[in-house]
């Protein structure tokens, strides 16, 4: 009899949790349920757990329980106040070695990807980057189900499913917003286990001298409810003014396809797609975007997609719930007018 542990890294900075952490807890719960039957038959137990690092972050540990963690391993140290690669990966490796989780998921954020590669290498185990699909599947030659991690490769043109047969934990970094948020249960109970990992002086040698906050760049498209995105069909950078106006009317934010960002029409923070952000707003409006695969993989999980393109054969229409074939410079003003009229009617 053994314990099969499904682990999640809880990412926090300045006491703010990156929501992908909760999405990961949702995935871990599902993965755990996928092996419950075989574990039960073998007399094994299955656990959904997470690891949290920081300085005075016990409140976050309690939140994690409400999102589905049975147990939170907490390393709470002043040295861990700000994320730094070396002390973070060494602490995590220490705790992973102690409990030997079977699966370990980390958000594919800048912080998570910086961390995951270091943790996996230190543990000499397999890591699949930037996954968009995860399941525990039966694999020939393996008694237990294995983590089947699916990810886009070659700019989203190909999906590859990767597995890690022997080494443990089976690690994946997971794209934010690909998976839904799990239910929040304020009554949930769980355990917080404090861990201590000794650090050398050398581990904390790299220092952060300064944080620079760039206001102009602080657009959060990942978690926006409404996104209006523009593509090459806008013709010029000025075309984004119209996009912005519609986004403003809808209380949303502005997205963009890669060619617009590459051309310098708008900053990278707005880029939707495989090489930008994955989004899943309630409403996604794509204007003048042809729909390259690399864009589609980043937005096809949106609840409702409206595409506007003058080319009736544009691939963007394949993922749209509704497509409008027409000139965006006519369609968007009509949309703005329509929304304004609706708001007046509501007022």
């Amino acid at each position: 009899m053994s314990a099969r542990r499904f682990w999640v890294f809880i990412e926090q900075e300045e006491g703010k949790v990156h929501p992908v952490s909760w999405e990961l807890l949702g995935i871990a719960s599902r993965l755990a349920s996928e092996v419950k039957e075989e574990a039960h038959a073998a007399g094994d137990t299955v656990h959904v757990e997470c690891i949290l690092l920081g300085n005075q972050v016990e409140g976050i540990a309690r939140e994690a329980i409400k999102y589905g963690a049975e147990r939170v391993y907490l390393v709470d140290e002043p040295e861990l106040e700000n994320y730094r690669n070396c002390p973070y990966y060494k602490c995590i490796v220490g705790v992973v070695r102690k409990y030997e989780p079977e699966v370990f998921l980390i958000g594919a954020t800048t912080l998570g990807r910086d961390l995951a590669g270091a943790v996996a290498t230190s543990l000499r185990t397999g890591l699949t980057a930037d996954c968009t699909g995860l399941e525990m599947g039966e694999v020939k030659g393996s008694k237990q189900r294995l983590l089947l991690a699916t990810r886009p490769a070659f700019g989203g043109n190909i999906m590859a499913t990767i597995l890690c047969r022997q080494n443990r934990p089976q690690m994946s970094s997971v794209r934010p917003r690909v998976f839904p948020m799990p239910p929040y249960n304020p009554e949930a109970v769980g355990e917080i286990v404090r861990e201590e990992v000794p650090l050398d002086e050398k581990d904390t040698e790299a220092r952060i001298l300064e944080f620079i906050h760039d206001q102009a760049e602080s657009v959060d498209i990942e978690y926006a409810d409404v996104i209006v995105s523009g593509g090459r069909g806008l013709g010029t950078p000025e075309g984004f003014k119209l996009i912005e106006e519609l986004a403003h009317e809808l209380g949303g934010v502005v997205g963009a396809s890669r060619p617009c960002v590459d051309a310098g029409w708008i900053s990278y923070a707005h880029q939707v797609g495989q090489s930008g952000r994955t989004v899943r707003p309630k409403l996604y409006i794509a204007a003048g975007i042809s729909g390259a695969l690399q864009h589609k993989v980043g937005m096809q999980n949106s609840d409702f997609i409206i595409a506007i393109n003058s080319d009736p054969n544009a691939p963007i229409f394949d993922v749209a719930d509704v497509g409008i074939v027409g000139d965006l410079f006519e369609v968007i003003p009509a949309m703005i007018k329509n929304i304004k009229a609706r708001k007046e009617a509501l007022a």
Binding site: M159, V319, G323, I324, V325, V331
Partner: peptide
């Protein structure tokens, strides 16, 4: 990648 189902197209 799996192809999602295309929705309706309206010609303005």
């Amino acid at each position: 990648p799996p192809l999602p189902e295309a929705g309706e197209k309206i010609n303005s």
